[in-house]
Computed example of a mutant assay.
Amino acid sequence: MVHKITTIGFDADDTLWQNEEFFRLTQDLFYDLLKDYADPEHLAGRLLQSERKNLGHYGFGIKGFMLSMIETAIEVTDQKVPASVIQQIVEAGQEMLRHPIHLLPHAQDAVEALGRDFRLVLITKGDLLDQERKLAQSGLGEMFDAVEIVADKTPQTYIRAFMRHGNGPDRAVMVGNSMKSDVVPAIEAGGWGVHVPAKFEWEIEKAEAPVEHPRFRVLRNLSELQPLISELA
Rank of each mutant, 00 (worst) to 15 (best):
R133A: 13
I70E: 11
G115L: 10
F162L: 11
L129Y: 14
R98P: 15
I204F: 13
M174A: 04
V175F: 06
F22L: 10
R46A: 04
Y158W: 11
G176C: 03
G61Y: 00
D11I: 01
H165C: 15
E142C: 09
T7G: 03
R171E: 10
A207T: 13
Y37K: 02
I62Y: 07
I229E: 00
F216K: 09
M1N: 15
A110Y: 01
H3N: 14
G115I: 12
G141W: 01
F200I: 12
A38M: 11
A207I: 05
M1C: 09
E91T: 07
A233Y: 06
A113H: 05
K53M: 01
S84N: 08
K125W: 05
E203L: 04
Q88R: 08
R220A: 09
R160F: 05
A198M: 04
T157A: 07
S230Q: 04
V218H: 09
A189M: 03
T7P: 06
G166M: 00
H3G: 14
M163I: 00
Y37P: 11
K134C: 03
G93S: 13
A161M: 11
Q131T: 02
S181Y: 09
D182E: 08
G64T: 00
Q108G: 15
G190E: 06
G93V: 01
K80E: 08
Q49G: 12
V184M: 07
N167E: 06
V150K: 01
K134W: 04
D39M: 05
H3T: 15
A110D: 02
I159D: 02
G61L: 08
D28C: 14
V194H: 01
A172N: 11
H165W: 12
K134Y: 06
L48G: 10
T26E: 03
Q18G: 04
L222A: 08
A209I: 07
L114V: 03
D182I: 04
L120H: 13
E224C: 14
R52T: 02
L103G: 06
K125I: 12
E212L: 12
H165I: 13
A172L: 04
F144W: 05
F30I: 09
I8N: 03
V194R: 01
R116Q: 11
D170L: 08
G45N: 10
A73S: 14
K125E: 00
P100Y: 14
E51T: 06
H213E: 00
